[in-house]
């Protein structure tokens, strides 16, 4: 039983100014439910930081710090070092958070350093596939053919011309003890992965697919549906890895064609206009099919 009073005591409280239907805020809520209050969190500059801590307000009931865009993993390294040397670790989880830009683009160096030095830090990347806080600009994790304001579609363009960077594999290449990919569409799976990550000492990386209603241009009610379709099409494979070996994948019961996923989102609208767009959708289907084979999703 959960009462209204209970909901007001959540470690990530309501009252933040995230968009209606924001999957990132859903993921944060789910993560803190698992980690509990013995957690210290850092957050890179981005939506989460802006919508959760407009002074004097804060949605956090755990010690929390935002410093800059690219140093979330570095600040977390310092926190972990400080707790360790002063004997204050006591099972505290150090949680570092960032968006896809703060993680895979501008923050990649600091993240790589944190992994390589072996800090006991859980890094969570909320992947919404673009710089949403600044108004939907392309990042290294923007998917192929997605419209963003800096990879627009037009007479000469189908949107983002490059495939999404394989960030989880970059994490795995550091041979950290645990890497996982999760989705706001699968909250039980997400919480299970966070729980496992928290039980392991050393650097951990969890990347979560978090649909963004204004950036992906869909009705807020579809946040979970779209996240689930990303998995069911094979476009966003969910898996776990220990060191550089994949140890589990979330199987998909029945392959869903990528159109089902793409057609719900305004960022792919330009692919549904003509024959040329049709051929682009086939390319995206090919990405999904390759994932299904590569990860053994079926």
């Amino acid at each position: 039983m959960l009462t209204k009073e209970d909901t007001h005591k959540e470690l990530f409280t309501m009252g933040h100014t995230g968009c209606s239907g924001c999957a990132q805020s859903m993921a944060v809520k789910l993560i803190l439910e698992v980690l509990g209050k013995n957690t210290i969190a850092t957050t890179a500059t981005g939506c989460l930081e802006v919508f959760s801590t407009r002074y004097p307000e804060s949605s956090w009931r755990i010690p929390w710090i935002h410093s800059l865009f690219e140093n979330s993993a570095a600040v977390a390294s310092g926190i972990e070092a400080a707790l360790k040397i002063t004997g204050r670790k006591n099972g505290t989880t150090v949680l570092a958070q960032g968006g896809d830009g703060g993680t895979a683009d501008i923050g990649l160096q600091a993240l790589s350093g944190m992994f390589e030095r072996g800090h006991d830090v859980l890094y969570v990347c909320y992947d919404n596939g673009a710089y949403m806080n600044t108004g939907y600009q392309r990042s290294g994790l923007t998917p192929f053919d997605a419209y963003t304001t800096t990879s627009p579609s037009g007479k000469q363009s189908f949107g983002n011309s490059r495939p999404k960077k394989y960030m989880p594999q970059i994490a795995m290449a550091h041979r950290i003890p645990y890497t996982a990919v999760a989705s706001a569409g699968y909250p039980v799976d997400l919480q299970k992965k966070i729980k496992k990550a928290a039980s392991i000492t050393g650097p951990k990386y969890v990347q979560i697919d978090v649909p963004c209603t204004p950036g992906w241009k869909y009705e807020p009610r579809y946040s979970v549906k779209i996240a689930r379709l990303a998995v069911q099409t094979g476009l966003y494979p969910l898996f776990e890895a220990e060191y550089d070996k994949i140890i589990s994948v979330k199987k998909i019961s029945k392959k869903v064609p990528v159109e089902e996923y793409l057609k719900l989102q305004g960022r792919f609208k330009h692919l549904f206009k003509d024959e040329a767009g049709r051929m682009e959708i086939e390319k995206i289907q090919k990405i999904a099919d390759e994932n299904i084979v590569k990860f053994g999703l079926l």
């Binding site: 409280t13 309501m14 009252g15 002074y55 307000e57 804060s58 949605s59 956090w60 755990i62």
Partner: peptide, 18 residues
């Protein structure tokens, strides 16, 4: 360093968004 109090966001009634 303009530090905010835990959970102070509850003061912000976001029901007006709906």
């Amino acid at each position: 360093g303009i530090i905010a109090l835990p959970g102070a966001a509850l003061a912000n009634k976001t029901g007006s968004f709906a």
